[in-house]
Design a protein around this nucleic acid. Structure first.
Lengths: 206, 206
DNA sequence: TCGAAACATGAATCATGTTTCAACTTAGAA
DNA sequence: TTCTAAGTTGAAACATGATTCATGTTTCGA
């Protein structure tokens, strides 16, 4: 299910052979399923190894603990989300259209990977450092884009970190509502509404 | 710490005497502390009863399980948040100023009650029904306000559910960043930036 | 003042699921 | 071929902490 090949850092237990790398990959993919489906608390190592088709003990060849897989997983998935969003970008595009494209890409991704969404959300409680890092990095990236837009004269010159967090929150909640919980509106429509909000605000036409 | 007097519904274990009601209140307040500080998983019933100053067994006079206290707590706190936001409202105010006031109230509240923030967030995993209900209710309330603003001609006539979710997401993430994680900007400044975004969008002045 | 219903207690029981470990298999270098 | 490091196995040991319950204590209406 997960095809990222980014080298995961599971402490000192890095696999040394091809077989090892494959097993590690199987475990991570199984963990994504297990955690995504049952949540951290209800997930069990047994469930992970069963899904991965390996014995219970094998798990401890690659991870020191339940918390550690979760951490590795968040790193892995966080990178996936980043890539998905980045793929939707085009530096030529105008600033607000860029945000629209990023959101549209994010929504499409979220629909395909609802588990990922849940896991990153849950990292707030299981692995707070990663959670914080994930959102701070994301916000920083948005802020960069906004500043670039301002420099080009497309956006107001006072775009700030708060604006970036506002946009990110918007995106996350729109994703929750229109990708994870319900798909009653096309992703492009949702992204369109959001970008229109960024462009013109909500005021009635004068 | 919690002064709400809303009648909690802990199943069939409603206290019948004054003493009982007091103990229940102590347990709920203790639970808010324990869950807020350690998260659902790391929180223990022992921790709750210790904080409440009662014996372990007493807990089960009022709740059937750990999940049930958490549920009762989310109901309790969700009502608190609602009240806090409502208090900041004034039907006379113009639509966007109303949203600004609501956010400002929310941010102040979040700074005072960081645990509450965490607990409601964590309900996504421990008590998904309540989580969903909390945000759907909140979004509905925002949407109502927006429609009222549109009817008064202050907002665009096409304000939608998506707008409500966008605003809610904005508020939640601004709360996370500028109330829970860091207080480096006055709540009113943050609310001002957000309301300005709603009013004019991000485009450069023409 | 009395008795029954409420409430409180905390040691003991239980359930669950993580982690260890000693024996075994596989891969691949010499 | 042979040897060794890497990888695999799953039953058993452990840890943790949620519940139970039999025994007091308190409250309060009659």
């Amino acid at each position: 299910m997960n095809t990222s090949s980014a080298p995961l850092p599971p402490g000192d237990k890095v696999p040394r052979t091809e077989r090892g790398r494959k097993t590690l990959r199987k475990l991570l993919d199984a963990a994504a399923l297990e955690f995504g489906e049952r949540g951290f608390h209800d997930a069990s190592i047994t469930g992970i190894t069963r899904r991965a088709g390996v014995a219970l003990g094998t798990f401890y060849t690659y991870f020191d603990s339940k918390d550690e897989v979760f951490h590795a997983l968040v790193q892995d998935l966080s990178a996936l989300v980043r890539d998905a969003a980045r793929k939707a970008l085009d530096p030529e595009r105008e600033a607000i259209a860029t945000e629209e494209a990023a959101l549209a890409g994010f929504l499409r991704f979220a629909r395909e990977h609802k588990e990922i969404y849940r896991i990153i959300d849950e990292s707030e409680f299981v692995d707070p450092e990663s959670f914080r890092a994930h959102y701070e990095t994301t916000a920083r990236r948005i802020h960069e884009r906004l500043k670039r837009g301002a420099a080009r004269g497309e956006l107001r010159p006072d775009v700030s970190e708060a604006h970036a967090w506002a946009i990110m929150g918007m995106n996350v909640f729109l994703g929750l509502r229109f990708a994870v919980w319900n798909e009653d509106l096309p992703t492009d429509d949702v992204a369109g509404i959001a970008s229109d909000l960024l462009a013109r605000g909500l005021k009635a036409e004068d």
